[in-house]
Design a binder for these strands. Sequence first.
DNA 1: ATGAAAGCGCTAACAC
DNA 2: GTGTTAGCGCTTTCAT
Lengths: 344, 344
Amino acid sequence: MAKEEIANENRPLTLRDVSMASGVSEMTVSRVLRGRGDVSDATRTKVLEAAKMLGYVPNKIAGALASQRVNLVAVIIPSLSNLVFPEVMTGISEVLDETPLQPVVGVTNYGPEREEAVLYEMLSWRPSGVIIAGLEHTDASRAMLRAAGVPVVEIMDCDGEPVDAMVGISHRRVGREMAKAIVRAGYRRIGFLGTKMPLDHRARKRFEGFTEALAKEGLEVADQEFYQGGSALVKGREMTEAILTRTPDLDFLYYSNDMIGAGGLLYCLENGIEVPGQVGLAGFNGLRLLDGLPKKLATMDACRAEIGREAARLVAAHAGEDSAGAERHVLTPTLEFGATLKRR
Amino acid sequence: MAKEEIANENRPLTLRDVSMASGVSEMTVSRVLRGRGDVSDATRTKVLEAAKMLGYVPNKIAGALASQRVNLVAVIIPSLSNLVFPEVMTGISEVLDETPLQPVVGVTNYGPEREEAVLYEMLSWRPSGVIIAGLEHTDASRAMLRAAGVPVVEIMDCDGEPVDAMVGISHRRVGREMAKAIVRAGYRRIGFLGTKMPLDHRARKRFEGFTEALAKEGLEVADQEFYQGGSALVKGREMTEAILTRTPDLDFLYYSNDMIGAGGLLYCLENGIEVPGQVGLAGFNGLRLLDGLPKKLATMDACRAEIGREAARLVAAHAGEDSAGAERHVLTPTLEFGATLKRR
DNA sequence: ATGAAAGCGCTAACAC
DNA sequence: GTGTTAGCGCTTTCAT
């Protein structure tokens, strides 16, 4: 009944409503609700009951404006459908769950302009920190990140200069290591299959590292194939068929991600191509999702969850400061031979 | 230089800074930046230049408090790793991109208490709408949704009573239709394989619909197997082996999702079990991700992207109102026979 | 077309 | 332990 008396108007409840319902000052109500400062048990109980009865939900907008504090961390990633990014998110959440901080996700679809817009939008909410994928951003984006006055952590990649802190792996190195392992295993006629996306800098760097290391061995990529969109598994099949038809003497196929690698693997198995004897295969990412395939694909782990965790730790550790202290964490992916790459 | 003079202190820029830099009142600066009201071209240019030079990013917290408007839509889902939810998100973004609204994601990990906490947190930012997965929520959550005073759309499911609007499919019906198709195709010894999760209400409803329809045909599930965690593809293999070992005369396996179904399919193919002659298989979801498998798995589409789009449309259409008009949109998934279910 | 004043709902800082 | 006062950075409203 008291409830109806008070909440009859259809406007959101405020601290004032709780204050009136409980007969306690707004300030004390605020203290109780935030668990700050000393409040007598009697008062606390009164307030809590009133708030619960009314169904009061605090207004964080007003709170944030008054306190100049926002417990949000902006997380900016290229895509959610890439599988890799949900795993990064999981790592981030894991760590932030132990703190008062909350992640808020923005998705750029691999568009630099879109990234700029998303970043602008998120910064306008004055988050306590920013975690952003990649080191390549527009000048305007970099300027915003620098001027944000909060910890900024660029993740996934470490081939380049971050604005503030950085947590990632070297994709150039991933490409190089894989090339070396392939050559060491005795393969010589090597094909590359990847995405067409010119904006996927990390895939590009892997390719560059790969060709560079091959060059050192006096080799070059014998043939290559690129795709865009569609089901990765299907594309992996199609590209594999195409490249092997065009260049039948290839003895190794390096895929820029595990999904297309899996498609290629299925194609080979179905067409009686012996793996890894006749043709060796390798991908990138270490997706657990694919664990149940007929053969385990050679790959290199992208350290996704760990990158998320470490980035979140950095932001949490530097929350309230104006930077993440320019820390640089370089993780080292391990090569998994699986059953598609000879162990030399 | 003017920049340094003004931005020397290390505090975020405000409208006032832009006002002083441009010699225009705060109010007019605000109008320019929001594109509201009549402002002369000369003034507009002056303001825009000043803002750009300073690198001013508006403070949405203050803006939201003053205008009592927040262009955020809370989207609450159980998980990001489920593959299904990123697709829903894609549908939502697609539609909201055409509006001033922005999605903000909260993840509950299938925990009702966690959902309650996430919802409370998001509502405290006073979003313009809420899109939330499922119809099952704690009493407190339902109370919050009812009291939110904004459009609320419950998605994915339509077997139950929504708080406000609802966009989804009937999982009971999905289970029933699949059972009917299986029986019609002549299968009689039917096994069920699914998640253990007692909190995945939609999986539970599919199972209920399935057994109910079988019962109408005088049949019951001959054996069942449940799993929890781990790689779904691997689990699919393991469970399939287990159930076929225990009950070798099964002639059909119904999986509660496509990933474990795919694992089962791979197991059967490798072990010389003829599909769909000796054993038929079916899953649920219609994941395009799996398109390149050796055989296409029978499944029913969950209409993920379309659900996202429709929910976003509803929220957008009712933005500013205090409900989404209790609309109910029931989508009808179609049965895809693939190559693992005989076409009767 | 532009400006001045008031206040959104909360919290910091300071009284008592 | 509790209350009072004064903003936080914007936008609304009303004046000019």
